[in-house]
Design a protein around this nucleic acid. Structure first.
Length: 345
DNA sequence: AACGCGGGGAT
DNA sequence: ATCCCAGCGTT
């Protein structure tokens, strides 16, 4: 029994029924692949369902404004995916008559589509013989063949792609690509895989050498930056508040937030009060300032730890550019701000 | 080649 | 706490 035969046999018995697997249409396949980049199936699923409902075709997605796309993407993270998704939808709709490029090579030219996603779409939609290399493939192949190559190295992707290409049945690349990823997601999991019931437990090199838990090898660990955000939740006599768009580079680009005072460390009531008076409401329009959360909310991103405090600022009169709470809820927010609005506002 | 970019689930 | 998830774009 070959590796691919055994793998595909396992897949046919164990695969999940996922909506994007019941089609060859590149549009929903593309949508699912973008959403699932660095994202678990369970987390991406509700977003896939809402996007395909609200935007049944690439033309519907192209017609939307970016703000509506970001609102629907709210909470999924890595928001550049949503911005690129929207731009690519407009490109496909306007320049390509709604028809996705038909090859791996041409798919690769689209914004937001890299080697993995191009291979996924080309194989799933067009049955092109091109291997996918994602985190699952690195793990499965590094263990089965005992490959100690650092998967963080730039050359690793080529090495594993070449191996996967040799292994894949040239008459059915789609099922092989689906199978190896599903096998990595369900059976050959990162921690404590149940090798006792694995179909490869007599041929897996890592299992034979008792080093499953040490593969794949991955170097590179990132350092985390601490940041301190103080959000001003303004409240005027109409009950209106103020939000602004994050337009600079960095996290949450093009999402909305309350007026922000970023500090170097946790600051107390007096410090923040002084800065609010000096930088925001100089003409003494402040009625009161209240600390919404005494302890900072620590919102952990993969590369930054955000220590967040919300400050309720009650002011006299009517603020310029104020918006009511109903309108407020229609804007796309980072999930930590969204949660504050829903629970504590 | 290295870094920035979200949020959440599993261990 | 730590790791990792159907990665990509920028520098």
């Amino acid at each position: 029994m070959t590796f691919s035969n055994l793998l595909i046999q396992w897949y046919l018995r164990n695969k999940r029924d996922l909506p994007w697997r019941n089609t060859n249409n590149p549009y929903p396949i593309w949508l699912s692949e973008i959403m699932l980049q660095q994202t678990r199936v369970a987390q991406g699923m509700p977003y896939f369902l809402s996007f395909t409902t609200v935007f049944p075709t690439v033309f519907d997605l192209a017609k939307a404004d970016e703000e509506q796309v970001l609102k629907l993407w709210q909470g999924l993270g890595y928001y550049s995916r949503a911005r690129n998704l929207h731009k690519t939808a407009q490109h496909v709709a306007d320049e390509l008559s709604g028809v996705f490029p038909g090859t791996y090579k041409d798919l690769l030219k689209l914004k937001g589509i890299g080697e993995y996603t191009a291979a996924a779409i080309a194989s799933f939609s067009y049955n092109e013989v091109v291997p996918v290399v994602d985190g699952n493939v690195f793990r499965v192949l590094s263990r089965y063949f005992d490959i100690e190559t650092d998967i963080a190295a730039a050359s690793a992707k080529k090495e594993f792609a070449a191996l996967a290409f040799e292994l894949m049945p040239k008459d059915n690349p789609a099922i092989f690509n689906q199978a190896i990823m599903e096998f990595g997601a369900l059976q050959c999991v990162p921690k404590s895989p149940n090798c006792g019931i694995c179909v490869f437990n007599e041929s897996c090199a890592a299992l034979q050498k008792n080093k499953v838990d040490r593969l794949p090898v991955k170097s590179k660990k990132l350092k985390v930056r601490n940041r301190f955000f103080n959000y001003l939740v303004v409240n005027d006599e109409q009950g209106n508040t103020v939000i602004q768009k994050r337009t600079d580079k960095g996290i949450w680009h093009n999402l909305y937030e309350f007026p922000l005072i970023e500090t170097e460390k946790v600051e107390d009531f007096d410090c923040i009060t002084e800065r609010i008076q000096k930088e925001f409401f100089t003409n003494n329009g402040i009625i009161s300032i209240m600390e919404c959360n005494e302890k900072s909310i620590i919102h952990k991103l993969s590369h930054q730890h955000l220590h967040i405090k919300f400050w309720k600022v009650n002011i006299k009169g009517t603020i310029e550019n104020g918006i009511d709470v109903v309108t407020l809820r229609t804007f796309p927010f980072p999930i930590v701000i969204h949660n504050f609005i829903e629970k504590d506002l």
